[in-house]
Nucleic acid binder design. Sequence first.
RNA 1: UGUAUUAGA
Length: 254
Amino acid sequence: VITYNAAITACGRGKRWKPAVELLQTMRTQGVVPDTFSYSAAISACKKCGRWEAALKLLREMQKGGLGRDRYCLNAAIAACASAGRWQPAVKILREMETAGPKPDVFSYSSVIDAMAEGGKLNMALNTLLEMRSNPARFPVPNTVCYNVVLKALSYGGRWREARALLREVAKGSLESETPDVLDYLSYNAVIWGCAAAGEVGKAFKTRGEMQDCGIDADAFTYEALVAACGMTGNWEAAEATVLTMPGATTGGV
RNA sequence: UGUAUUAGA
């Protein structure tokens, strides 16, 4: 079984959902019974290819076969809906988990928030995040991924002010409580891109400064955003100056 | 052996 499961996972990594699903059938003809590991890997393979319906079908198949559906399978199914922007089935699975178990974890919520964001329900995604934060007795504490999903959606949805406000609020909060940083380079890059895309060059650079202040290194994606922002306003001198601040810029030749 | 953001070309 473990060998088959590893093969299904490998199909997923290669974005080959069909062979992944077919392997489940192959197992049975070989007298090997697929387990929850097999299904979570196969559902995830569907997710990687945008096949949310195939993913939900596998979930139904598990139930029909009397195989208990665990968190991994349900979370993978929510993620499959998220990648395809189908927020409604994602929410439905989450609600079922809330009422009938297994109790949703932070993976379930980050995925469902992503589903809302990808499905254009940005306010719903934001509210879910805020709800998690305000009710730690009922919900898992939102982690980096939960914030990143919302920050990215706000940023790329043109709501860079809110994205920056949330970013700064979270940064301040983790500073005050001395908790390890919840934000990472993805959080900052998303907001920097959001500012850049809106032509808010100053805010983009300011956000990069805050990124440095909390010890996160700018990467190629960060510089790309900053240069794009300068380019948008036609400020080629600033763009060039930014390029020259990149590590290795003076040794790589320009 | 299995699940979430990982980028906007």
